[in-house]
Design a binder for these strands. Structure first.
Lengths: 357, 357
DNA sequence: GCCGGGAGTCGAAGCGCTTCGACGACCGAT
DNA sequence: ATCGGTCGTCGAAGCGCTTCGACTCCCGGC
């Protein structure tokens, strides 16, 4: 009906001369549909009852005009940006594919909750978090690669915005954390190997730097391995392991020199798997005939290796999904558990067997 | 001076009863510093001259109150969100570490330009782009993993927001694109090998799916290899290559069965490097004594392999930085080149040598 | 026939910021 | 003295949206 008027008003008399953005606004939609601005808003948000006839008229106007609500205006008025921050690590010792899977899962899940994801790297440090949160750019924060005594933890506590940590700091009070139960994962590996009859095993863990900075998952896996080994009467040697072929070779060689009777390896470092296989082959040991191998790594990776690896998959996608739904819960003021530990499971493939044939 | 008044007004008489957010606003800063709101704004933006004494008074009030400008309000008023979108691929055949490096570089560079990064995955498709851009959530868009005939390209052309593509579509008119000069990279590999005296070489390329969907870099590398091979009188066989050990083994075996005299391999698929080394070792061929290997992959990866690989690094960081500074240029309305191709360079390491000793 | 109450809609008041025009003060040039 | 011009500052008008009353119908219960 009054499309012409709309055009006229926007074209000629818009504001005090500022350039119009070209995008239709909610007012344009209201005019086009012959309703009040607030009605359009309620159609979109569903926060008040709207008659079916009005609703569909508004929706069709929206479609006709190609209207998309302005994010800034919406954030300002509603105090919700519909964006969550994802803080990713980018330093050494991270498992790139795991991080990537995780990020992907977070973005996908966030979209399902009608949120977008703002990407931060942890090297901006606490200041970046504060900027983002205090400026109301994001409604909530997901932090990955949390250390036992992470400097960001106190900040998160008093930030006034929902946050979820991926990984466990030493003190989880007043926080929300998700992670794989790495302690249990370590146990599972040992139990599997012990069940097969192995009596002397080794854990090739994460790079040294990861232990040093107190990243929880590395410590917890090691603890699980040691604990279960003791419980099953298995001898377990553990050592960190860098991500390059040279160090892996060196470690493996040294390991068998000192403990020739080791019959199984647990590998936590995905990047170490291939070099380790090479090293074993070079020393004339076959998998699984001479040495069994269990990996803690993405399932797909283990499946593509040769031989296919028995592994405890890191369910990056599941963790990502959980993390998102936990922040969303907190955004709705629902109570959420302080710590969510996902149960690991062990997938048996071709790299483990009874020792000594 | 009037801190008490501030407290009082915000505490008791704030608005019509809506809860105050707790964050200080620009009005609080203005009051605290005893100046007008606009003056604070100009101190922050530098868009008008402000006396030194006023400026420092305002800045100190900002520090005292812990003021952070509200992103939504700023975006609304200035029509700038100071956020750029980064569209990442998450499908098969992508080189995860490269993507990660790239994302990292983008975030870091964006921060240097006072922008944040919103992460999108390409599986939301064009609709996601439209939503983000039309809703003014972002000022500009970076799109990775562009195909030759990408559906998003027409959309980007008419989006009304600056965008930069990483990778080259078939038609680059009215666009801005950055990429490594993969054609030249292919040539470089061949030239290096030809210079060493190799006469029969093979390219183990990207996974088949990557060629099929017309991702530029794979085609361009292959073209460069073929072209340079012809020019140097070298026989070149090219074939796609999946990312799992089984396919690599199979490819390598088949290759040498058909062409026993091949003395050098070019590998484009980072994930194929390790399995390929294993396959060569299994067939009793040593690198570089029996077969030379050149990889197109991240430098760090090549340096950590054993033997250390001669390679043409993919300068993900550099591309990321370039992409960001190109969008920033476009945001400032500066003219930018349509296509930016970064020159590749070849790093000689231990995996290439003259053929037949 | 009257009242209470839900359903459906509207108008207007912000949300916190940027930016434009205006204005006083002060300068040097006429 | 007078005029024009900077410099520094202020006030106010939005930016496009959400949300809170308030208002009008209309229906059922008594």
């Amino acid at each position: 009906m009054c499309v012409a008027a709309v055009q006229h008003e926007r074209g000629a008399v818009s504001g005090r001369g500022r350039v119009a953005s070209g995008q239709p606004t909610i007012a344009d939609v209201a005019r086009h549909a012959g309703v009040a601005v607030s009605t359009v808003s309620y159609v979109l948000s569903g926060k008040r009852a709207i008659s079916e006839v009005t609703r569909s008229r508004v929706l069709s106007s929206i479609r006709v005009l190609g209207y998309h609500p302005n994010a800034g205006a919406r954030a300002l008025a509603s105090r919700r940006s519909n964006v969550i921050a994802l803080v990713l690590p980018l330093r050494s010792g991270i498992q790139v594919p795991v991080v990537m899977q995780f990020a992907t899962a977070v973005v996908t899940s966030a979209r399902r909750h009608d949120h977008d994801v703002l990407l931060l790297t942890s090297d901006e440090g606490p200041e970046g978090l504060r900027r983002i949160a205090a400026g109301a750019l994001v409604d909530g924060v997901l932090v990955m690669d949390v250390e036992l005594h992470d400097v960001r933890v106190p900040l998160l506590r008093q930030l006034g915005r929902p946050s979820v940590l991926i990984g466990l700091p030493a003190d989880t009070s007043e926080l929300t954390c998700v992670d794989l139960d790495f302690h249990r994962a370590g146990q599972l590996c040992v139990e599997h190997l012990a069940g097969l009859g192995h009596r002397r095993i080794a854990l090739l863990g994460a790079p040294g730097a990861v232990y040093d900075r107190g990243t929880g998952f590395a410590h917890r896996t090691r603890a699980g391995v040691i604990e279960a080994a003791a419980r099953h009467g298995v001898d377990a040697v553990t050592m960190p392991c860098e991500e390059n072929a040279a160090d892996v070779h060196h470690r493996v060689a040294g390991l068998f020199a000192r403990h020739p009777d080791i019959s199984a390896l647990i590998v936590q470092n995905e990047a170490a798997v291939a070099p380790m296989q090479a090293a074993l082959a070079a020393s004339g040991r076959r998998v699984p005939d001479d040495v069994s191998v269990v990996a803690v790594c993405p399932d797909q990776f283990a499946d593509h290796a040769s031989p296919r690896l028995t592994c405890v998959p890191v369910p990056a996608e599941e963790i990502g999904r959980q993390a998102v739904s936990l922040v969303m819960g907190k955004l709705r003021d629902e109570p959420v558990p302080e710590v969510t530990l996902l149960p690991p499971r062990l997938t048996v493939r071709d790299s483990t067997a009874r020792p000594g044939h």
